[in-house]
Write a protein that binds this DNA or RNA. Structure first.
Length: 375
RNA sequence: GCGAGCGUAGCCAAGUGGUUAAGGCAGUGGAUUGUGGUUCCACCAUCGGGGGUUCGAUUCCCCUCGUUCGCC
């Protein structure tokens, strides 16, 4: 299976940045290539919410992230499987990645018990008890049928003691073995996840250990859980170089302009983040490295596009004043237009980085984001 | 013209003779990182006007203005 797998999920590195660890590559999946570095919008079906596949495709998005936990609750993986799998059900022709649900246990359950066998918690939706374990998470993801599936991990909160993080990290490794055992589809790549909280030596030990599993890709998880942004960069810089050169590296849950640039400089290829769509639903636009609250008074009579230099549908057709009006009157179209723009913006941002690396001007062009702190 | 009622923020609307006058909507800012889905947080009034009573009135009394209902 190893050869078939490595063939189906080949990662080619085309160029390395001369001054940083940044690189340009292509990650091949059964549903098409992903040109890296690349931002992946979250998610689809239960989650992108306001974009059609056509609209999503027009943003330049290649791979999208869907959510195991939400799809398990509704409509249930059996229905997705009977519908012909996730790609067909949601009509997304490109690559899809599913998250394992490990993060959701951390982020949105109140009552939970985490044991060696797995996790149980009360669904915030309807109160029913949900069980997740490595085997269940993989079984669900096998049924959903995404191109890339994620190991079921334990994501410790921040802050957490070194002892607690070490326990969670060790458990994540034991769970990874069970995930690999449970995984049954050779047309799906299982990625491992590096945990270790903010303890760099735990991170590095975890990375070294994971490499031995020879997985088709690796992710850094457990960041952007409330820690100071500077710590994310530290973690990424300490961990990424230990992951294999010839495999895609994915930083989960990130992020912002700065975090992405710094992570790419450390050798990261893929990102996912709810920021563009969540901000859209809250009335914010990402424009030229800034966040704007389109509901602010100053946009009321601003008859220019969100970003005159942006090629997206929203910017080609509508004014800031119009979007501001849609938001004030709570028209659903506001969320669609802002989502189109925001996703386009972050995808384009990673595309521009890709181009800059290819032209060997990454450091000079993205200097403002590489320097320590500022807006 | 007579009788009764009501005037608290842009709107709706509690409330009390005593240091900081509920709440909602709207408004103004802010937040948001492997998606709990029109979210969360903060700010935003001296009580129609004038005069009395009182140590003290948004609250009680008088006048006035506005408004609503009924009668003529």
């Amino acid at each position: 299976m190893g050869d078939v797998l490595s063939d189906r999920f080949r990662f080619e590195c085309h160029k390395h940045c001369s001054a940083t660890q940044a690189r340009v590559g292509t990650f091949y999946t059964p549903h098409g290539p992903v040109e890296t570095p690349r931002f992946m919008p979250v998610g689809t079906l239960a989650n992108v919410k306001t974009l059609t596949p056509d609209q999503l495709q027009a943003t330049g998005a290649q791979m999208v992230l869907a959510n195991t936990y939400h799809l398990h609750l509704q409509p249930g993986e059996d229905i997705v499987a009977r519908a012909g799998g996730l790609h067909r059900f949601m009509q997304w022709p490109g690559p899809i990645l599913t998250d394992s649900g490990g993060f959701q246990v951390f982020s949105l359950s109140e009552i939970r018990s985490i044991e060696e066998s797995g996790v149980s918690f009360r669904s915030p939706r309807d109160g029913q008890i949900i069980h997740l374990s490595p085997e269940i998470a993989i079984r669900i993801q096998n049924a959903l049928g995404a191109d890339v599936i994620m190991a079921f991990d334990e994501c410790p909160p921040y802050p957490a003691t070194r002892e607690a993080v070490a326990l969670a990290t060790d458990r994540t490794h034991r769970w990874l073995e069970r995930c690999i055992q449970a995984h049954q589809r050779s047309d799906q790549a299982l990625f491992g996840i590096v945990q270790g909280g903010t303890y760099l030596d735990l991170r590095q030990a975890a990375a070294r250990l994971l490499v031995d599993f020879d997985l088709p890709g690796y992710a850094i998880g457990g960041v952007s859980v409330g820690e100071p942004p500077a710590l994310i960069e530290e973690i990424v810089r300490a961990t990424t170089p230990l992951l294999p050169q010839d495999k895609p590296r994915y930083l989960m849950g990130v992020g912002t302009y700065r975090e992405m640039v710094q992570a790419i400089a450390a050798g990261i290829d893929l990102f996912d983040c709810v920021i563009p769509t969540r901000l859209a639903r809250h009335g914010n636009a990402l424009v030229q490295g800034q966040r704007w609250n389109l509901k602010n008074n100053r946009f009321r009579e601003d008859f220019t596009p969100l970003d005159p230099s942006c090629p997206c549908y929203t910017c080609r057709h509508f004014t800031r004043a119009y979007v501001s009006h849609l938001l004030r009157s709570r028209e659903l179209l506001a969320y669609t237009l802002l989502s189109i723009h925001n996703v386009t913006e972050l995808v384009r941002f990673t595309q521009r980085i890709r181009t800059a690396i290819l032209q060997d001007c990454f450091v000079s062009e993205f200097e403002q984001w590489l320097l320590p702190n500022n807006a």
